[in-house]
Design a protein around this nucleic acid. Structure first.
Length: 457
RNA sequence: GCCCUCAUCGUCUAUCGGUUAGGACAGGAGAUUCUCAAUCUUCAAAGCGGGGUUCGAGUCCCCGUGGGGGCACCA
């Protein structure tokens, strides 16, 4: 069997969203799984809506997700150019071929594709106009995911507009022929178009590629498929929020596909090894940001320290360039980030989660403050802590723990009696990493200063 | 309106005619503890309805219902 050649063919007419990303991913996975070729083709024939900004977004998003293409813009290939806007000559050549078969005609200045069969005029009361129906046999589509699908294509359709520009159905099919595409993997929203495409392939006298129509991703809340306007739809957004691409890829691969059994968290190499078209589901999947957040956390937790610190720094630099954290010493930044790594679900939590390590101007949660100061005798505890700080051993977490325990022992109290008020004092809140770690990193002076400030306020 | 398509816990899904219908996310309870997470234990949670086929159906077929998509000189 010849080599698999698949393509991802987006239009640069809007933001790059989760549905497009998954279509790209499934194509890429199939190419990698079969040792085939993954082609990127830009369908930029809509001159009104195209933009370079959206084009670059496609490149950036694919790069970020790790979906490298073997042929396409920037990397070239023997079937280029890979931007439809540059393929006018190819379309003219194929149009002549089609005209030679007698399967086209001109009407109203446009070129139409002619179906074979008896014609009759029928009034379509949904579209409120008279249309010409062609009596013909249904088109059969053998879909790798949906099985045998029959659809009646019974109206001629435009392939070249009166302004001379070829339409999507035509360019799409011509390019799939010219680029030797073997498998068309795309969203189910194209299933209804497929009968047009199959008729074109047949008219050109070429073999019809294998089709695989993947289910759509439905919006999290409310009806309908996910679109660019929906909350959580944009890849760019996940990139900005510091999600790990590996996590997003893993999550996306599981939306509509699974390897069978209970496996969920898999490195991408494993997904490539297991992925196959018959394993793709037939039903639409609803997007779930909670699950994505969970997968992201799993990947974050297992990141090696150096990698985590690097990712954290990149996140700060990209999204919070003015954060005091970036002005701190590298070793201190590292210590703070590593102390926080096991506690957060996403990098985007980091700035707020670690703010008090880098500034004296951190927020004190009034509710927490009220709650902590109302319980027991916090002022006495603060006094005791401040008094003992000078003899505390700040060298390690366990030394600090022992110091607090010793202090407690002298007052017939336990570690826990100091925990809440100390935490409020040094961080302004009640949630955070271990109090001993916080003491150690902040150091004796700052701890003392902050505890005194709380006592005096 | 017409055409296509899909249907298991709230969500993502496993099950290749015979299972106490399994897992994960989310939710509840508990354990741990230095708060919050994480982690561990645990609870609750599903075969859309109706007909067939079969010894036996979530699984195959039909009808209904519901969801999704499409019906342009957009892609």
């Amino acid at each position: 069997m010849s080599q698999v050649r698949v393509r991802f063919a987006p239009s640069p007419t809007g933001f790059f969203h989760i549905g497009s990303a998954r279509t790209a991913l499934f194509n890429w996975l199939y190419a990698r799984h079969t040792g085939g070729v993954f082609i990127l083709r830009i369908e930029d024939t809509d001159k009104e809506r195209n933009s370079d900004q959206f084009l670059n977004l496609i490149y950036d998003s694919l790069h970020w997700l790790g979906l490298n293409w073997d042929e396409g813009p920037k990397v070239g290939g023997e079937f280029g150019p890979y931007l439809q806007s540059q393929r006018g000559a190819v379309y003219r050549e194929y149009l002549e071929k089609l005209k030679a078969t007698g399967r086209t005609y001109e009407k109203d200045g446009a070129t139409w594709f002619k179906l074979i069969g008896e014609r009759s005029e029928v009034f379509d009361d949904h579209r409120k106009k008279t249309v010409t129906k062609v009596k013909t046999a249904p088109t059969v589509i053998d879909d790798l995911i949906r099985g045998r699908v029959e659809r009646l294509e019974d109206e001629d359709f435009v392939i070249v507009r009166s302004d001379g520009n070829p339409v999507f159905h035509f360019t799409n099919v011509v390019d799939d022929i010219a680029m030797r595409i073997t498998h068309v993997i795309r969203g189910e929203d194209h299933l209804s178009n497929t009968s047009k495409h199959v008729e074109l392939f047949k008219a050109f006298g070429v073999p019809v590629p294998q089709f695989a129509h993947i289910p759509l991703i439905l919006k999290q809340n409310g009806p309908g498929k996910m679109s660019k306007r929906d909350q959580g739809a944009l890849i760019e957004e996940y990139q900005k929020r510091g999600f790990l691409p590996a996590a997003l890829v893993n999550f996306l691969s599981l939306l509509g596909w699974n390897p069978g059994g209970d496996r969920e968290k898999m490195p991408v190499e494993e997904i490539v090894r297991l992925f196959d078209l018959p394993g793709v589901n037939q039903s639409n999947a609803r997007f779930d940001d909670k699950k994505l957040a969970h997968v992201n956390m799993l990947y974050l937790l297992e990141l090696p320290p150096d990698t985590f610190v690097e990712k954290a720094r990149q996140y700060f630099e990209a999204q919070h360039p003015d954060a005091p954290a970036l002005k701190a010493k590298a070793a201190y930044f590292r210590d703070v980030m590593l102390l926080s790594q096991p506690k957060i679900k996403g990098l985007e939590e980091l700035p707020a989660y670690t703010a008090y390590f880098f500034t004296e101007d951190y927020v004190v949660d009034p509710k927490v403050r009220e709650k902590v100061m109302a319980k027991g005798d916090p002022k006495a505890r603060l006094h005791e802590l401040i008094g003992a700080l000078a003899v505390f051993d700040f060298s390690t977490d366990s030394a600090i723990e022992d110091s607090i325990k010793n202090l407690g022992g002298r007052h017939n109290l336990a570690f826990g009696d100091y925990q809440a008020v100390a935490r409020l004092g040094v961080s302004g809140t009640n949630a955070g990493p271990s109090i001993t770690g916080m003491f150690r990193l902040l150091g004796r002076e700052k701890v003392e200063e902050r505890l005194k400030r709380l006592l005096g306020s």
